[in-house]
């Protein structure tokens, strides 16, 4: 490796660092329970705000979104017999809010369902959202035993819309990113 390569690598990381100067968490890899525990503990216990329910809100939102990535990512790694979803998690701090972003590959076959769900959630007011949550929770569990209300609960807890981004990768998969703002 010559000098130029070294320099350009360093520059790329520096650019990235500068872009994310208010980043609290930036992670990419398997959504392993030990890593999620470490990040979750930080969110629950840190001094981001003295108002405790705020931290619990952030923690709850983090858990629901992280579980979705772990269960539904189209990119997986096998560790000790269990299959773990791979994805990206970024938490940034802004003047009046925190932003929690997750991103992962998703099979195109599941894409419409999740996009439709997010769009439905964003169209509902708070009472309608609570009714939608009750209907969904009453229904059959998901293939992973879930209650199918993670995203609804995220919208209720954050009181903000779910901001989604879809990038087509190939015939089989797309990249799906979800951004949630949590007001300070």
């Amino acid at each position: 490796m010559d000098m130029m390569d070294n320099q350009s690598d360093a520059l790329t990381l520096w650019d990235y660092y500068m872009l994310n100067e208010k980043t609290q968490v930036s992670y990419q890899g398997p959504f392993d329970r030990h890593i999620l525990y470490a990040i979750g503990s930080m969110l629950k216990g840190n001094d981001v705000d003295d108002n405790k329910p705020f931290n619990k809100k952030t923690f709850s939102i983090f858990i629901e979104l992280a579980q979705n990535v772990a269960s539904y990512s189209a990119e997986n790694i096998k560790i000790n017999e269990s299959s773990l979803g791979i994805g990206t998690l970024i938490i940034t701090e802004h003047e009046n809010y925190y932003k929690l972003i997750t991103g992962n590959l998703i099979y195109n076959g599941s894409l419409d369902k999740i996009v439709d769900k997010c769009e439905t959630i964003n169209q509902l007011d708070r009472d309608e959202l609570r009714r939608f949550k009750r209907e969904q929770r009453r229904g059959p569990r998901s293939s992973h035993g879930g209650a199918n209300i993670g995203l609804i609960q995220v919208a209720l807890l954050s009181s903000n819309p779910l901001d989604i981004e879809v990038i087509a990768i190939d015939d089989d998969k797309s990249f799906f990113a979800l951004t949630v703002k949590i007001d300070k």
Binding site: F59, Q67, R138, G146, A147, I149, Q153
Partner: peptide, 13 residues
């Protein structure tokens, strides 16, 4: 309970 995830809430129901 002072924290439960949504999967648990289905079991509470």
């Amino acid at each position: 309970l002072d924290y439960y995830n949504t999967t648990t809430s289905r079991s509470i129901l």
